[in-house]
Design a protein around this nucleic acid. Structure first.
Lengths: 248, 248
DNA sequence: CATATCCTGTGGTCCGACCACACAGCTAGG
DNA sequence: CCTAGCTGTGTGGTCGGACCACAGGATATG
């Protein structure tokens, strides 16, 4: 058992037992080292891991914002994890596309079903937001689409908004795990998507098509057409990756 | 920009450029520190993060196994990530169950379709294994089921085999990302599942039911009945969590 | 009372040292 | 000559101590 793992175990146990809650601060590094009978460098390695895992956020200085504050950000570490393993070339891009299709068609279906008022199919185990909130969140997504209508956008700006749009759609299902995975997938592959833009025959034409597809997807969800929404988003994703020759 | 991030960027760039490959070793900590003009503690923090991300495996001593060796193990860091965020109580168990249902019903469907020889539906983007290998992998899963028939198994041993079985099924679809997520989900919640065993009215009766359901799922996949396999595994998962009152 | 200053505690970084470990090569004994 | 044992060397693991930058609160000063 390495010394820094002592800190990880201690923190996980404290979290599980409720002795550490969101927004609270970890004991100082020096204090933690003394409590566990280890050195400060060992504590620091553990804090770094916790930071990389999105469990704490560190800051210098004093006051309530300083120190190692407990947060819950699963998305950013997931992004880093995906990026690193993508870099090793042992995580095929095709698998990521396939996963996106699976998750996004499911979230689109869920959102449409909830919108149609038939969401109570027994699989709604999460403490999900009620249907009334859905319209607001859809409006947020549509706001992103409006901003994407600007013809002067660079491909990079366009794809950043595109990623936000897809993540916003994924959040509609109310599953924080799936939303986090989707967000991480989009962020992790952003660089790869941009690098593939030159593969497109005609960027402007592609952008027009993507805008139109986005509107259709939102319309299907708003109309509560679950199957239609799932099909549209599947074709939307696969179509783009095929056009950009990113499927490998 | 913190100093340890220099190391992370350097390693990610080296991986992406092919200067670092699986099985090779990172430069020594002292050497890396000198190259980047930073101190060894800073390098160590970065190596710790890489280790926590499943990108390297460190060992003391000398020889080819010692040092920081590049590996590609996305599953274990995912497990740690899920465990930690589960501990913060900001990752509802219901969301995990929902995700399992989504992923496992999809993999079961994929496996059955491939078994039926109709796998070529255009969504098979990964360099997936050909149909012939499926039978072998199904046999592995069935071997696990045979071992689970032992009536003397403790609930813990039973659930470990159960987790292996579900992970083996998930691997049938040939998507390393989804397989890694499934494996991590099962491992991360293992402790919670065990803690919920006392909630079951009759453990022995539950085990009998689970064994029977497992056999039915494998039979459906072997017969190429995709819809049937998906339905069976969905009911199997939801039924257990309901019986164990784990849906929150 | 308002402002400017100092104090304190935080993480960030570094140095130098020593340990445990594992292999490779050498040396002493057969 | 061969083998068993020892030693050298390089690896990560750990430690104590030191100094810095930073941010907020306490305090002194106008």
């Amino acid at each position: 058992m390495k010394n820094y793992e002592l800190v990880l175990n201690r923190v996980e146990a404290d979290l599980a037992a409720g002795r550490l809650r969101l927004g609270e601060r970890l004991p100082g590094e020096r204090s933690l080292a003394e409590q566990l009978g280890i050195s400060r460098p060992s504590v620091r390695e553990a804090v770094r891991v916790l930071e990389a895992m999105g469990v704490v956020r560190t800051a210098t200085g004093s006051g309530p914002e300083a120190g190692a504050v407990i947060v819950a950000e699963p998305a950013s570490p997931l992004t880093a994890l995906l990026r690193l393993h993508l870099a090793t070339n042992h995580l095929p891009m095709g698998d990521i596309v396939q996963t996106r299709v699976l998750l996004e068609s499911w979230t689109a279906r869920q959102a449409a079903e909830r919108q149609a008022g038939v969401g109570a199919d027994g699989r709604e185990t999460a403490g999900a937001v009620a249907a009334p909130g859905l319209s607001d969140e859809l409006s947020v997504a549509e706001g992103l689409l409006d901003r994407m209508d600007d013809p002067g956008l660079t491909p990079e700006a366009f794809h950043l908004l595109d990623a936000e749009f897809h993540v916003a759609l994924s959040a509609l299902a109310g599953n924080v795990l799936i939303a986090a995975v989707m967000s991480s997938l989009r962020t992790a592959i952003h660089g790869y998507v941009l690098a593939a833009v030159p593969n497109l025959a005609d960027w402007d034409a592609t952008a027009v098509g993507l805008r139109s597809e986005h509107r259709s997807i939102v319309a299907a969800i708003r109309a509560g057409q679950a199957d239609q929404a799932a099909t549209l988003i599947t074709d939307h994703i696969e179509g783009f990756y095929e056009a950009a020759r990113l499927s490998r």
